[in-house]
Design a protein around this nucleic acid. Structure first.
Lengths: 266, 266
DNA sequence: CGACGTCTTTGCGTTCGCGCAAGATTGGCT
DNA sequence: AGCCAATCTTGCGCGAACGCAAAGACGTCG
């Protein structure tokens, strides 16, 4: 609570960058222009992403040309729940959290997305409103397409439609699983399972283990509990040695042990 | 628990009906063959369904010709969690519940589907396993397509792909909402919201209100609580008059009042 | 019609996890 | 360096909901 209140401006991811676009000094050596080396990066990113799986480098390059490169500052809002969806964002570096606000003011974090993930995936090409708000957790680099420019791309490469279905479908099954968890499992197990998922999604190698950068409150909002309970849990687990509680983060030292957490571990 | 244990046979929705297929005696009057009148019914159903939205009657008829009509008996299993998905089922009458079983044996009901809904929607055309089990809640009539026969249809009518994305996307947002609810709201509100949703999905007009045919336990499995708590809740609400607790069902007399249920209502 | 199985109700004790409050820790910023 | 705001920790009490047990209601089937 609190930290974000200042950002009251209504954002909508704009294609036009805030100044910090492609021309980041990358010390491009003689002959290779900065634009080209960025383009190559983008193509690599795209080919590895679930969204553009199956497309050739050639094709990715084509599609990349309709995109704008952007950076998002820490805590910057990409879009807000309820707004009409207009932009597709492919994350290059950094992580983005998608959270939903309920009528009674309660907030949950629905998704954490990292490098290679797509945010604002269009179901139909247009017309829908965002079901959640998106916020950069740290400085992010990303590629942004406007839906209307995407229309042609989708028409030309029907494979992307298939990939979108695939993405939607796998998100659905992940959420089904998480729904079952939050509906039936006790807090300790839920938190353990959430952490294990987060390891893969936004985990960063760190001394002594893999670090997940989420505050106690954010972890609580992912698992349907309170920051107090999370704090107590992590303290306990810290004593047992398989996690290291950090400020706004958790370092997981032993994922296997974490996976064995059961009801009696709290 | 228990009632279902007997059905140990491994099912997989078969195209070949169990005998009770198209030729239900419908007292077809002279001139109109039973087949034709069924086909007409199917086309009407399809045109009204989200899956085939936008297709002409002509086209629906074409597609219907690849389908088999089937009935499912009460408590019949359409498919089981973990099995490879092979069939698309469009519900004509009756309702089907989709439930997921966790590793520790806890079960939740993820979806309740009624007339016009599609079960086993293919994300990609094949290769995936079912994330939940499907069971007919009552005698159901349905149309069934095999995935391999569907391949051609999907290729010929790309609109269906779009519709599938649409369906997946709207299911995703419903589940996001329910996830938020189960993660943040108290039991009373969760149950009220679940009932309101069920009214639309599988509600049947009944004397004194709209009836939802779910046992206490099933209602509990939808909302992440126990049959005891549900029973107590419904008793209380019954006293207040806006619902009627019935055996394996709930009659909602005043949906507006139900929507106003808040924490202090239990 | 009566017996049985299933579903439901309700009482009661227990516990998990909430939520406040006060204090400790941390990192950023001037 | 030192202040300040944000985050985190921990103790404590309480209440929502669980979960068992026993009894009641209902429908079915012989």
């Amino acid at each position: 609570m609190g930290r974000y209140m200042a950002t009251a401006r209504f954002p909508e991811v704009s294609g036009a960058p805030d100044g910090s676009s492609n021309n980041d000094s990358h010390g491009a050596p003689n002959g290779v222009s900065t634009i080209d080396s960025n383009l190559a990066e983008h193509v690599v990113l795209m080919c590895a992403s679930a969204l553009f799986t199956g497309l050739s480098q050639q094709e990715c390059m084509e599609i990349a040309s309709c995109a704008r490169a952007r950076t998002f500052a820490r805590d910057e809002l990409l879009f807000m729940q309820g707004q009409p969806a207009r932009h597709l964002v492919l994350i290059q570096t950094g992580s983005i959290k998608l959270s939903q606000l309920g009528p009674s003011g309660n907030e949950v974090i629905l998704w954490m997305n990292g490098s290679g993930d797509a945010v604002g995936v269009p179901a139909d090409s247009g017309g829908c409103n965002h079901t959640c708000s998106a916020r950069a957790m740290e400085k992010c680099k990303a590629l942004v397409w406007e839906y209307n420019k995407l229309q042609n791309v989708l028409a030309e490469y029907p494979l992307i439609r298939k990939n979108i279905s695939q993405i939607l479908s796998s998100r659905l099954s992940e959420l089904e699983e998480r729904f079952r968890e939050v509906a039936t499992e006790k807090v300790a197990k839920r938190v353990a399972l959430a952490l294990l998922r987060l390891l893969k999604q936004i985990g960063k190698q760190s001394q002594g283990g893999i670090e997940v950068s989420l505050s106690r409150e954010e972890l609580a909002q992912m698992t349907g509990t309170t920051l107090f309970t999370i704090s107590r849990l992590l303290s306990r687990w810290g004593e047992q040695g398989f996690v290291l509680p950090r400020r706004e983060a958790v370092v997981v030292r032993d994922a296997v042990r974490l996976g064995q957490v059961s009801d009696d571990d709290y």
